[in-house]
Design a protein around this nucleic acid. Structure first.
Lengths: 110, 110
DNA sequence: CTGATAGTTAAGCAACTACTTGACTGTCCC
DNA sequence: GGGACAGTCAAGTAGTTGCTTAACTATCAG
């Protein structure tokens, strides 16, 4: 999980993911719009591969990269879980604020 | 955006967020379950605050921290957008594979 | 074989991260 | 006032990240 968010914490890598969401690409196609050397792109690619966001396969001399949406989903799920939990808490707070004052138990304040 | 994912790329900080999702807490309450010094917790807290995931307010000598769900939502949205785009592409690929071969235009292959 | 293409490896470097310890500043309560 | 409590500042350090350049290895086309 650390690795996934770490991978997404970089604009370049998010750009690469967005590119790959649109379909598979070779390393050079991936590098083409990026203002950096090929080795730099390779390093980003390795980060994306290490956390499972991207799978790559080399055939002949070209390595083809494609996105692996399951891991993307995992991150989304974690965030979604936090949000829904928070919304639940809001609901319960709302209930508490709108429900009529419960009768104080007899003897609760002598 | 970089900052948000960067902030979430750390287990300690995710733990802090999960703790705060359950309700506001003071710095020491936040630090209590964590196996590290208070200054370390403060630094994590500053990261969370810098990216807007958490807001804090000091009253008297205690600083109260609470989660800011809008930023959490932003990250979730980015991920959701990627996923839905990918699903769209899958759909269109499915259409392409299942639709009948289009008639070749007259003269397209002499 | 030769040259161009596609990718890979390795070394080096500046900047950043996640801590630590130690000293310090306020605030609260008696 | 004086001690305890809650938090803060500063400096130092080991390890990581994001890049670079230079040299190298395969693969393909003619």
């Amino acid at each position: 999980m650390d690795r996934v968010f770490q991978a997404l914490a970089d604009q370049t890598r998010r750009d690469m993911v967005e590119r790959l969401i649109g379909g598979p690409a070779s390393v050079s196609q991936l590098a083409e719009p990026l203002a950096m050397s090929l080795p730099a792109v390779m390093q980003h690619l390795r980060v994306l591969e290490a956390c499972g966001l991207v799978r790559t396969e080399k055939v002949g001399r070209v390595r083809t990269c494609r996105v692996e949406p399951t891991v993307l989903r995992m991150a989304e799920d974690w965030l979604g879980r936090q949000r829904t939990t928070w919304e639940h808490h809001l609901d319960r707070l709302g209930d508490f604020l709108t429900e009529p004052q419960p009768k104080p138990e007899p003897g609760s304040r002598p």
